[in-house]
Write a protein that binds this DNA or RNA. Structure first.
Length: 322
DNA sequence: CAGCGTCAAGTCACA
DNA sequence: TGTGACTTGACGCTG
């Protein structure tokens, strides 16, 4: 029997004024005459973002939600070239530790998903270097939160550059240039335009990286293959991980905008996944990527409760009984 | 207070 | 060749 645990992404539609990704653009930053004061302002924003994350975790605790993706935009301009000298970690280390401690005390799984600027298979050295910088930023945040960075950061294989095979091999070549600590931190997710589940499995198995299965991306980009035939391989990429298997669930907005995320989750699609994977491993953490965030999670739970085969274990986790 | 243009970064699709 | 979409939007000016 498998325990399915639900999580959501970055922000809440229920908790007001709790943005974890307030920001200041570089342009705005440069416009401020007193650069010293501008840096202090960045630090105030970062502290507010982290504080709002803590509020989100408390909100999650109240609803027995123990799985959550942190915003990658906690510290605005943290990886900007012009702010290399800025020691942002000193300014926010207490806040990070408080956040990390709260998550640990309450047994919460936290992770990151940096956005599309992380491209490890880029032919351009500059792009690769920027990607490493962004990954290092995530690594340091985890470290300062007191969280073991192992398998906490998910991203995609990268671009196609007109030649998928070559670009996959470039990822593997570039991998040896990635510091070991960061290598251990990452997971790879199949994407909706370039790299299918099978492509990602090839790389994950070769480099010993856990694969995060995204069922919505798979439906958009699968090369006539079913995910079911690959599921055991997916599970195996997690055999050396301290964390449970993780997957992403979202639903198409519409047929015309298939790749866009809908507000809520299609319960039937999810139940199909649950039924088929039940028993394959002890636990699967399912990250809900829907526009309505925790609102979508709550709605999904409501619908799951109606189902005769679903047994709720907490407010956000359940098992399937035959 | 709503609406909308703008904002660090990369790649791809589509005009 | 240029623009929008991708997505974790958010800010700040305008009417």
């Amino acid at each position: 029997m498998t325990l399915f645990r639900l999580g959501y992404v970055a922000m809440s539609v229920n908790l007001q004024d709790a943005s974890p990704s307030q920001t200041m653009t570089y342009k705005k930053f440069k416009q401020l005459l007193d650069q010293e004061a501008a840096v202090r302002k960045l630090e105030r924003i970062a502290k507010s973002n982290i504080h709002n994350c803590l509020r989100l975790l408390k909100h999650n605790k109240a609803h027995e939600i123990n799985f959550f993706r942190l915003s990658s935009r906690l510290v605005p301009l943290a990886t900007h070239e012009d702010l290399k000298e800025w020691d942002y970690l000193s300014a926010i280390k207490d806040d990070l530790m408080e956040l990390g401690s709260f998550s640990k005390v309450n047994g919460m799984r936290l992770d990151f998903h940096p956005d599309h600027f992380v491209v490890l298979n880029a032919p351009r050295k500059e792009v690769f270097k920027t990607s490493l910088k962004v990954l290092k930023y995530h690594y340091l945040l985890l470290q300062y939160m007191g969280i073991d960075p192992t398998h906490r950061c998910v991203f995609h294989l990268g671009g196609r550059y007109q030649d998928k095979e070559k670009s996959i091999e470039r990822f593997i070549d570039n991998w040896s240039l990635v510091p070991q600590g960061i290598q251990k931190m990452v997971m790879i997710e199949n994407d909706d335009t370039s790299y299918t589940l099978e492509n990602c499995l090839y790389v994950c198995e070769k480099l010993n990286i856990p694969l995060v299965f995204d069922i919505h991306h798979h439906l958009a980009n699968h090369n006539e293959e079913s995910w079911e035939m690959h599921w055991e391989r997916v599970v195996n990429t997690w055999s050396h991980s301290p964390l449970p298997v993780k997957m992403h669930i979202s639903s198409p907005k519409s047929n015309d905008e298939f790749k866009s995320h809908a507000d809520f989750i299609d319960v039937d699609l999810f139940l199909d996944f649950v039924k088929k994977t039940n028993g394959s491993i002890e636990q699967i953490d399912c990250m809900i990527e829907a526009k309505k965030k925790d609102g979508a999670l709550f709605k999904l739970v409501e619908e799951l409760r109606e189902h005769p085969n679903i047994v709720m274990q907490t407010e956000s986790s359940f098992t399937w009984k035959e």
